[in-house]
Design a protein around this nucleic acid. Structure first.
Length: 420
DNA sequence: TCTGGGGTCCTAGGACCC
DNA sequence: TCTGGGGTCCTAGGACCC
């Protein structure tokens, strides 16, 4: 009975290295949109003390002075490499849960008994590295929470093979003893503070509290975590392609936006993109929310956050309906005199594309829904946007600053790597 | 000067019902 | 003058994840 967690090492930084062998052993960082924060660091960059999520401008000078290499994020490329890694993993066992762009859980129960799981892990790691160039860590344990602990142990002990199988009670206990409670999956900052205040500092101490007590004093979520630390299996592999429950498209702006006429087309772009995602999921939504906010870091400027939710009487995935709702939502929340730093669209209340729910009362704004029309638009826009809606900003999503992006090596013919 | 984006799940409390 | 008890459903917001 075991699960494996496969975790790509410094994923975005490793991707940037695939076609750049000259960057071996060079510190690499990858930045968020607008080159705002550091969102990935190579081992060398971590060793230099570059923290996760730190604002780039705070570390830029020292990092570049040490000859570090910096990249703007290239999610198209990372997504493609991720898909290749996941494909390989899916070849090993039938049940794989793709947990995030750089992590997957594998159910190893289907393997023959007496299979040496550690050797199996090493074999998978070798093949992923050989076929994609991405180094992975593999933590094997009786359940998901403990497989996360195994990954932490690989990092902490710097295990050279990057594979660890926590196979008996003593090994698990020893690992828990060396894990601070904050590193446990499901314990964030707030919970950590509460647990510390109660005198609980390590994962081992957390595991020694009775689940009933934890449930009473905290929550059922933490109770599950405690049970898993004790070796029970509470969370299972979720490999059914479950559909999304919410779609969010939002961006921070490269430059602050303070007038409605500039904001409208930007938010329209978000709505168009969100609708595309929705149709891609083969879903319809009946709730559209719009939000805007100023920068919370700008303490001496007036702050405002506005959010408005619009109900649609009939579920739709038609961009025009969602644009109409978006406009309706934006007008009442916008206030002049504020420097807005971010805006976004959230789609909620999904229903299947096939099911049809008509309103009992006639909706005066009857959705214009036309599935075939939207399909044509999607086809034409598949590779590059050809057709715009009148309310859109035809240039870009939002004024975004980003200029250190690597080529789309594997997804664009014009940017294929060249061999001289 | 410059601080990401996209998700899920749970809970408390209000609205409403009989 | 006196004003219950038990339940469900929904939503906003918090906490967490990568």
């Amino acid at each position: 009975m075991a699960f494996a967690l496969v975790d790509c090492e410094s994923f975005y930084a490793s991707c940037e290295r695939i076609f750049r062998p000259d960057l071996k052993n060079i510190p690499i960082v990858v930045l968020s949109n607008n080159d705002g924060c550091v969102i990935a660091r190579s081992t060398e960059a971590k060793r230099m003390g570059i923290g996760m999520g730190v604002p780039w401008f705070k570390v830029r000078d020292s990092f570049l002075k040490e000859n570090g290499k910096v990249f703007s994020s290239n999610f198209t490329f990372y997504g493609d490499i991720s898909a290749r890694v996941m494909n390989i993993l899916e070849g090993f066992v039938p049940r794989v849960e793709i947990y995030s762009i750089d992590e997957a859980f594998l159910d190893l129960d289907s393997l023959r008994q007496n299979y040496n799981l550690y050797d199996f892990g090493c074999h998978m790691r070798g093949l992923v590295k050989q076929w994609t160039g991405v180094p992975v860590r593999i933590g094997i344990a009786p359940n998901k929470t403990l497989s996360k602990i195994a990954i932490n142990e690989i990092k902490r002990r710097n295990i050279p093979t990057s594979v660890l199988h926590l196979s008996n009670k003593d090994q698990i206990k020893n690992a828990l003893k060396h894990t601070s409670v904050h590193k446990v999956w499901g314990v964030g900052r707030r919970l950590n503070d509460h647990l510390n205040a109660a005198g609980i500092n390590t994962a081992l101490e957390l595991s020694e509290i009775s689940p009933q007590n934890i449930r009473r004093r905290f929550s059922v979520v933490l109770e599950r975590t405690v049970r898993e630390l004790r070796g029970e299996r509470c969370l299972n592999i979720e490999d059914d392609i479950s559909s999304k429950k919410q779609i969010v498209v939002s961006r921070s702006f490269g430059e602050r936006v303070s007038n409605l006429e500039t904001l409208k087309p930007i938010v329209s772009n978000f709505a168009v993109r969100a609708s595309e995602k929705l149709r891609n999921e083969k879903q319809k939504c009946s709730q559209v929310s719009v939000f805007v906010r100023t920068s919370p870091f700008n303490k001496n400027k007036p702050q405002h956050t506005g959010m408005k939710t619009i109900e649609l009487f009939t579920p739709t995935s038609d961009t025009r309906d969602i644009l109409t709702a978006t406009k309706k939502g934006l007008l009442p929340i916008f206030r002049s005199g504020y420097d807005y730093a971010k805006a976004g669209i959230i789609l909620n209340r999904f229903s299947n594309e096939q099911t049809r729910q008509y309103s009992l009362f006639k909706d005066p704004n009857e959705p214009k829904e036309n599935t075939r029309f939207m399909k044509y638009i999607d086809q034409m826009n598949a590779y590059e946007t050809q057709i715009y809606y009148a309310s859109q900003n035809t240039k870009k999503w939002s004024p975004m600053k980003q200029n250190m992006t690597s080529p789309k090596y594997t997804t664009n013919w014009y940017e294929l790597p060249k061999v001289n």
